[in-house]
Computed example of a mutant assay.
Amino acid sequence: MFGRLGAPEIILILVVIILLFGAKKLPDMARSLGKSARILKSEAKAMKDEGSNTAATPAGPPTPGEQPPAQRTIQAAPGDVTSARPVTEPTDTTKR
C-alpha cells in the first residue's frame, strides 16, 4: 500500500512541503542542513585523527619541563570564521 511512490505522489509531497514552509525558508533550511553536515563531518574526522594520534603515542606522566598543549581552534566549516572558537585541550588532573 505505502511501498510504491510514483512521480505524482512525490510531486504532491514536494508541493505540500513548499506550502507548509514557504519557498522563502527552504533555501535557509537547506543551507543550515548542509552546514550541520559539514560540522559533523569535520568533528568526526578530528575525533578519528585524535584517536589515531593517541594510539600511536601512549600518554605517560608529564615531565617537569614539558609545555602544556597549545590552544586549538575548532571551526564550524572551512572558511567560516564567524563561529570559530578557541578551545583548550582537557588535561589529566588526577594525582597519583
Rank of each mutant, 00 (worst) to 15 (best):
L14Q: 06
V16Q: 06
I17Y: 04
I17M: 06
I18H: 05
L19T: 06
L19C: 05
L20P: 00
F21M: 09
G22K: 01
G22A: 08
A23R: 05
K24T: 10
K25I: 09
K25F: 11
L26R: 02
L26A: 01
L26D: 03
P27M: 00
P27F: 07
A30R: 01
A30N: 04
A30F: 10
A30I: 08
R31W: 13
S32A: 12
S32N: 12
S32D: 11
L33Q: 05
G34F: 08
G34H: 06
K35F: 12
A37L: 13
R38D: 09
R38F: 05
I39T: 02
I39R: 01
I39P: 02
I39H: 01
K41T: 06
S42N: 12
S42Y: 02
S42W: 00
K45L: 13
K45R: 13
A46Y: 01
M47A: 13
K48L: 14
E50V: 01
G51R: 11
G51A: 09
G51M: 10
T54P: 01
A55I: 07
A56G: 03
T57M: 07
P58Y: 04
P58I: 01
P58Q: 06
A59K: 09
A59Y: 02
A59I: 12
G60Q: 10
G60K: 10
P61F: 05
P62W: 04
T63R: 15
G65I: 02
G65D: 15
E66Q: 15
E66F: 01
E66I: 00
Q67N: 11
P68E: 15
P69G: 05
A70L: 04
A70S: 14
R72G: 03
I74M: 10
A77N: 07
A77I: 07
A77P: 03
A77R: 03
P78F: 03
P78C: 00
G79T: 12
D80Y: 13
D80A: 15
D80G: 11
D80F: 11
V81C: 07
V81W: 04
V81Q: 07
T82F: 14
S83K: 13
S83E: 15
R85C: 07
R85I: 14
R85V: 15
P86E: 04
P90F: 01
T91F: 02
D92L: 13
D92N: 15
